[in-house]
Nucleic acid binder design. Structure first.
Length: 238
DNA sequence: AATGATCTCAACCGCGATACT
DNA sequence: TAGTATCGCGGTTGAGATCAT
């Protein structure tokens, strides 16, 4: 292809965020390539998806991992290895990227410390790769630890156990379709959005976008002055 | 206060899987 | 069935923030 569109990279601007949120609201969070095109954003669909999934999605929980979540991550990593999306699926409001980052910084260090401790107390001659002992949860190896298939087999009760560890109603299982979330579910949010759209929030009336979706994330872009003050909303109305 | 080291996290890349034509 | 487009995942990078000296 000779025609070379200028694809923007790097950090997203507030305007881009607003734009993306709006178009996701309009068309749903799928068909990212389509969204990228119709929105006029000079981003790839992939980039749009990432931005939404990791940052803009109102269902995201922000802030530090709780000790329960931390524990759960540790447990799940010992079970699933680096299958971050799978792990994220058990932690509502957390993204695979977030968990991955978190693991790399906190847990890996922790795991390393744990190993050092073990080394100190156990004879160093024992093979480090021999992790078939039950210690996997306590001393996960550094990145790329293979999935512990044995754990997998014993895992039926494992999940329940982990759910308890994470605290009540904070874990749901995609596979079983079970949802017990403390956070706003995305369905609820979209329901709210839809109902507000049913009234008369059309593209032409965009400045009244202050639906519960926006209220839900008061600390993010939708409450910024930019949104209300900036008159350049031509991208909304065409 | 200046500077270097370390940490954090948003974003990109490559690749495999899946859907569509 | 083959080719192409799109999506989603895991790994990696790099800029900014924070901490230690």
């Amino acid at each position: 292809m000779v025609q070379e569109e200028i694809i923007r990279k790097g950090p997203w601007t507030e305007q881009e965020d607003v734009q993306l949120v709006f178009y996701v609201k309009m068309f749903g969070d799928g068909r990212w390539d389509f969204l990228a095109k119709v929105s006029g954003l000079k981003r790839t669909g992939k980039s749009c998806r990432l931005r939404w999934v990791n940052y803009l999605n109102p269902a995201l929980k922000r802030g530090k991992m709780t000790p329960q979540e931390e524990h759960l991550v540790l447990q799940l990593h010992s079970k699933y290895g680096n299958r971050w999306s799978k792990i994220a699926g058990k932690l509502p409001g957390r993204t695979d990227n977030e968990i991955k980052n978190y693991w790399r910084t906190h847990m890996r260090k922790q795991a390393q410390d744990q190993r050092n401790k073990n080394k100190a107390s156990i004879s160093p001659s024992s093979s480090f790769s021999n992790s078939s002992s039950n210690s996997s949860a306590n001393s996960p190896t550094v990145d790329s630890m293979p999935v512990n298939e044995q754990n997998e087999r014993n895992s039926n009760d494992g999940l329940e156990h982990l759910q308890l560890a994470a605290g009540e109603n904070t874990v749901y299982d995609h596979e079983s379709g079970e949802k017990n979330m403390m956070v706003y579910s995305i369905d609820e949010i979209w329901k709210e959005v839809e109902s507000s759209e049913d009234t008369d929030q059309t593209m032409n009336k965009l400045p009244v976008m202050a639906s519960p979706l926006w209220d839900y994330c008061p600390d993010t872009l939708w409450m910024t002055d930019y949104y209300y003050d900036n008159q350049d909303i031509s991208f909304f109305t065409g």
